[in-house]
Design a binder for these strands. Structure first.
Lengths: 341, 341
DNA sequence: CTGAAAGCGCTTACAG
DNA sequence: CTGAAAGCGCTTACAG
């Protein structure tokens, strides 16, 4: 570590005690200092380019100024976008973001717990793996650790932040209904994940609102990966008749559906319309480009950081739904008028 | 912050002084302690679940145990993959990774410089934005700050880690030559970026080795984005004749090329073969799926973390080329035999 | 309005 | 082999 200037150096240069420098720099409004003293201090600080030493400050203040974002996989455009939101909102709260993996929560010798206990981070933002049966894994964390679960609705044990997944599912479905489709399937996520359930509810509600019957065989719940999407399409093929349109609950799965449809020489959108949730840039680069429901992923991350900040400052556990901007369909090339148009 | 156990608590429980606990935990092999003392200490530590307080340790030891990875945009599969490598290798060196943006280097009030000066991070891994004219921006960093530039070859001022970009360009081109193409263009990156230059050299060398002429009009250097790819294709169209094949220096640009070709109703690979550098998962999800040169992106990140560690431990500036595994073509669906097959 | 002092939790010469 | 003490750089009661 370079020999940096300490509070003491600045104090000596300004001809005051360290207390004064520290207080001037703290910008405590209740503080009385003579104007010329303050000026001298600021001058010295400026000349020396003094910045407080973080470790000294953290030790004294008992906080680290860091939060950790734990995701299953950065190699997922959705989480990458969330991380941008977290990083930026954290920065606005003068917090720094540490990037980690959801594995860090794994019970035996949890790295996340250690980080918290060591005082390296003040809180956690957690995206669970979809395979996780439930967020019980978080039970492994010391209960005092401030944490917020993202993409989870109303978890009883922890604060959570989610987007309006139900509305996203509803909007996607309503769009297809309006196009004249009635035979609409759902390629959904795992049943145990909160977002998958919400999106499915939205899908069902849109159908119900339109008085359109739902066919159980047209709903699959295989997950949010391209492979899951492929599998879902295969399953659909197995039990004809096929729907004329499907809602896919996740864009990565939608890419898989599209690939499988292509392999099966199925024409999209002529034979099958597809609307997916999540407007990541992959949606714009498939062929045909995916019609997608844009959801506030970035805002989700930002709100998670803000919520965590509140919790860290002693706020109560809370459940936040990010509903601004609301889910909206971005029409591209995977939808076509349905038979009832 | 939760009331965690301190060294003192463990010491009291074990009936020894804090010095002993600290020393036992440090695992200094040169240390003499009675076996039963050590056992008592370890027992107490285990029972209490003691972990050292990070701030105390960092203050005393004058290091933070953290590094920062600065990238232009996480929403780029290549950097996401690099970050995985960095994170994992950092973890192996007991370092934690802070994720930041290249903007943090911007001269006025550089956040990166502050982070270093505060002792919040011990070093930096930097991916420059492609628009950056040159790495001179790093001149803004205090010279003592350990830093390594990634995706840059042989920068004179700083350590750097890069993949074998020349070989990647060569392999891509050689693959097309072998397929019977001779009219081969290059959709390259900005001239000022080191990787773009290297990939272009590889492309030229492959042509030269095969005794095939290069046509200047078939080389564009518009950057690594989908938009750049689209623009490059448009430019190619403007000045016929067209090559029968192109090497694209970056997969994101390749996605743009593909989209533009589709819009122009150009048949890939029948009328135009495409081989791109970077085998991110996007390559597998375009239509047709991109034939790509797989390069060791993950390893690049991991090696960057290791190199930075060495530099932080006082090692000299160094330039590392990650050449294992070597660049290799992953054949998919954007290549076809050329006219000289 | 300003300063001297304590103490955050740790490691490590130094004594014994 | 073990302990008492100093000191890393900071903030903040407490005194004046």
């Amino acid at each position: 570590m370079p020999a940096v200037t300490r509070l003491r150096d600045a104090a000596e240069r300004a001809g005051v005690s360290v207390s004064v420098v520290s207080r001037v720099l703290s910008e405590d409004p209740s503080l009385r200092v003579r104007e010329d003293t303050r000026a001298r201090v600021l001058l010295a600080v400026g000349e020396l380019g003094y910045t407080h030493n973080h470790a000294g400050r953290a030790l004294r203040l008992r906080w680290s100024g860091a939060i950790a974002l734990l995701v299953p996989d950065m190699n997922n455009a959705i989480f990458a976008e969330v991380s941008r939101g977290v990083e930026i909102a954290a920065g606005e709260a003068d917090l720094v973001m540490l990037l980690g993996r959801s594995e860090w929560l794994d019970p035996d010798n949890s790295r996340a717990a250690r980080l918290c206990q060591q005082g390296r981070v003040d809180g956690l933002i957690v995206q669970l793996r979809d395979e996780e049966k439930s967020p019980e894994i978080l039970g492994m964390l010391p209960p005092q650790v401030p944490a917020v679960l993202i993409n989870w609705h109303q978890h009883r044990g922890l604060s959570s932040v989610a987007i309006d997944d139900e509305e996203a599912g509803r909007v996607a479905t309503a769009f297809l209904l309006e196009l004249g489709h009635r035979d609409i399937g759902l390629v959904g996520g795992f049943e145990q994940t909160s977002t998958a359930r919400a999106r499915e509810i939205g899908y069902r509600r849109a159908l119900a609102d339109a008085g359109v019957a739902r066919r159980a065989g047209w709903t699959t719940r295989l997950g949010y990966t391209p492979e899951a999407g492929r599998a879902a399409f295969a399953k659909l093929l197995e039990s004809p008749p096929l729907p004329t349109a499907i809602v896919v609950a996740n864009v990565n799965a939608a890419a898989g559906v599209l690939a499988a449809a292509r392999d099966a020489r199925f024409a999209v959108p002529e034979q099958l319309s597809i609307v997916t949730v999540h407007d990541t840039w992959i949606a714009d680069h498939t062929t045909p480009a995916l019609t997608a429901v844009r959801v506030p992923t970035y805002e989700l991350g930002a709100e998670a950081a803000r919520t965590l900040t509140r919790v860290m400052h002693g706020g109560r556990k809370q459940h936040v739904m990010v509903s601004d901007p609301p889910p909206v369909v971005v029409p591209r090339s995977t939808h076509a008028p349905g038979p009832y148009a």
